[in-house]
């Protein structure tokens, strides 16, 4: 039996709302993700996807319930977990190579050693030649590549990706979806990928977890067994896409 890498047990999260009320965002979410599994969490806009990521990352604490990653309870930010952000969150004052090498540098890794693995991940995400560029000079797709390389380079055992392609144009988005599968197949990690895009979910996932609107709970799950690389317009793809789509609540 494969190892459980991310386990959420009955987590709920409320924020203090306006005039003393509480805003219940997540409500009793339980999920478990196996080692090297690619799970997509699919939910409508503003349903609490980023909140879920923050809870698993240890950037915020659940109101109730608990999270473990690789068997360890999460109580604070943990470098064993990599995060790729919705709005890239690159350090604008650092070049591509310094952004990618940030994690190893914090660990105090020697410069020569660091240089080697940084280059490895820059090559892996296809940014060879842009090592010295600053983020401001890169396109949206390239910035996300840096974000992915930065997370990988810290060698986490799980990777949380928060709508990383939400701000990209359609063409770049397709390209990046292919890339993420390619990178994952080259360097296997447990991935939890969040999106509100059904097509993206069906293209990427081993398993899709569908969320409801706020207060958010898990509606249903789909196992995706289509062989990779997947074809966006094959019959099986389209019919699964329709099934998943029908399970999704619409906002407004």
């Amino acid at each position: 039996m494969s190892k459980e890498m991310i386990v959420c047990k009955g987590i709920s999260k409320s924020f203090p709302g306006a005039n003393g009320s509480t805003l219940e965002v997540l409500k009793d979410i339980s999920l478990s993700i196996n080692e090297n599994e690619f799970v997509v969490v699919l939910g409508p806009g503003q349903c609490g996807k980023t909140t879920l990521i923050n809870l698993i990352a240890g950037l915020e604490m659940p109101t109730s319930g608990n999270v473990t990653v690789a068997g360890n309870p999460i109580t604070k930010p943990n470098p064993d977990i990599g995060v790729v952000y919705q709005k890239t969150a690159l350090f604008p004052w650092l070049s591509v190579q310094s952004n990618v090498g940030f994690g190893p540098m914090m660990k105090g890794m020697k410069k020569d050693e660091r240089k080697k693995i940084v280059q490895h991940y820059i090559d892996l995400v296809g940014l060879t030649g842009f090592e010295k560029s600053y983020p401001i000079k890169l396109s949206g797709g390239m910035r996300q590549r840096v974000g992915i390389a930065r997370a990988y380079c810290n060698n986490p055992s799980v990777l949380l990706m928060d709508e990383p392609f939400g701000h990209l144009d359609a063409q770049t988005r397709y390209l990046m979806q292919e890339e993420v599968v390619r990178i994952w197949e080259a360097d296997k990690k447990t991935i939890l990928f969040v999106t509100n895009n059904v097509e993206e979910a069906v293209y990427l996932a081993d398993r899709i977890i569908v969320l409801s609107n706020c207060p958010t709970h898990i509606v249903t799950e789909f196992d995706v067994t289509l062989p990779r690389p997947r074809d966006y317009v094959s019959r099986d793809f389209l019919s699964l896409r329709k099934t998943v789509n029908d399970s999704l609540e619409r906002t407004r």
Partner: peptide
């Protein structure tokens, strides 16, 4: 978010 990103990468 940048502070969070740095913490996730192991910064104290």
């Amino acid at each position: 978010t940048l502070v969070g990103a740095a913490r996730m990468l192991g910064a104290n």
